[in-house]
């Protein structure tokens, strides 16, 4: 199944372009995404709704809705070109190499089936020893995601679970196969704030133990930067900034990342005003002629509207901005003093 050399990235997107076909014409969701993720990495993909992050996550498993169409580019997962696979190998890739955790934990479980039966289905064909161990395997899996009383949870129906419990069950099902890549699309957005941290801890601990690569899609830059070694910022269907979490958060190289970081509530001290990003995210009908952020950018110059920015390297980050170098040298993007909340061992990064 897996003909990878260890050095080869496990996820590679190359100039991926995806449109949604709407009644009034196409809407561009991904506008040329380039991304490479190494095995074992934990990557936070950050962006507003409409930035294309969910589309990117779905593209990993070719789970795009039927009205979505790939226009250009490729997506490789574990060495397989996802969009070129026949149905059977595609299913095998999804089954063996990919795990997904979605936003709505209870909705992601079939309401007509007991939790145990659903977990068993996720395990099917993967249990070396027959019968006896199936129930134990289900209980072990549920125990692994730190659910108290796994036997009771296995007997329950999804609507009898809390959101946090359901998300742990979904995680257990996704991790049942020890996938190479786990895509977590806003896994805690629907959960209470006190449960969030527990669920995130569980996800990251499990994936670290299994050596699974994690793509965590979120709109919360700070939450992601706290827990991931690497942060990828998406805007207008492109990856506009990509680099080590501490660098992206402390010295954002793209004006959008900077605006995002300053608008986060956790950033402000009590009494301080938040700086919202003026304007709204773009709705593209085709390729953006220039930089998608140009309309909202404080540092906009003429060519931003007409010329697509090339990839620039600034500090440790890869940035799509015409003025990235310039902005760094003039220190135009200062951040307010921020609480030190990046643990050194994660911040030290890869």
């Amino acid at each position: 199944m897996n003909q990878l050399t260890p050095a080869e990235p496990v996820v590679v997107a190359r100039d991926l372009v995806v449109d949604y076909l709407a009644a009034h014409g196409p809407v561009r969701a991904l506008d040329g995404v380039d991304l490479a993720v190494d095995a074992g990495e934990t990557v936070g993909v950050v962006g507003e709704s409409g930035s294309g992050k969910s589309t990117l996550g779905a593209a990993l498993g070719r789970l795009l809705p039927s009205r979505a169409e790939r226009r250009h580019g490729s997506m490789h997962v574990a060495g397989h070109s996802v969009f070129d696979l026949a149905p059977q190998p595609l299913r095998q890739l999804r089954r063996d190499q990919l795990g997904f955790v979605f936003q709505d934990p209870i909705g992601a479980l079939d309401p007509t089936m007991r939790v145990g039966a659903q977990v068993r289905r996720a395990l099917r064909g993967r249990q070396p020893s027959p019968r006896r161990s199936t129930r134990d395997a289900v209980a072990a899996l549920l125990d692994q995601v730190r659910l108290r009383d796994p036997a009771r949870v296995a007997r329950a129906y999804p609507h009898q679970l809390s959101g946090g419990m359901a998300q742990r069950v979904a995680l257990a099902m996704a991790m049942a196969v020890q996938p190479r890549v786990l895509v977590a699309d806003e896994p805690t957005a629907a959960l209470d704030s006190q449960v969030r941290d527990e669920v995130l801890d569980t996800i990251l601990a499990l994936t670290r133990a299994a050596g699974t690569t994690v793509l965590w899609l979120s709109h919360d830059l700070n939450a992601v930067a706290r827990r991931c070694a690497r942060v990828v910022v998406m805007y207008g269907g492109r990856v506009v900034e990509d680099g080590p979490a501490h660098a992206v958060l402390a010295r954002p190289a793209h004006p959008y990342t900077h605006a995002l970081a300053s608008s986060a509530p956790s950033h402000a001290r009590p009494g301080e005003r938040l700086t919202p990003i003026p304007g709204r995210p773009p709705l593209l009908a085709g390729p953006a002629p220039g930089c998608a952020f140009a309309e909202r950018c404080r540092f906009v110059v003429d060519r931003c509207a007409t010329e697509r920015p090339p990839l620039a390297r600034v500090n440790g980050q890869a940035v799509l901005c015409h003025r990235a170098e310039e902005l760094r040298s003039t220190a135009a993007l200062p951040l307010p003093a921020r609480p030190t909340d990046i643990p050194a061992e994660i911040g030290g990064g890869r």
Partner: peptide
């Protein structure tokens, strides 16, 4: 969503 999730499980 559970249909998408089932497809995602292969």
């Amino acid at each position: 969503p559970y249909v998408t999730a089932a497809v995602a499980r292969g």
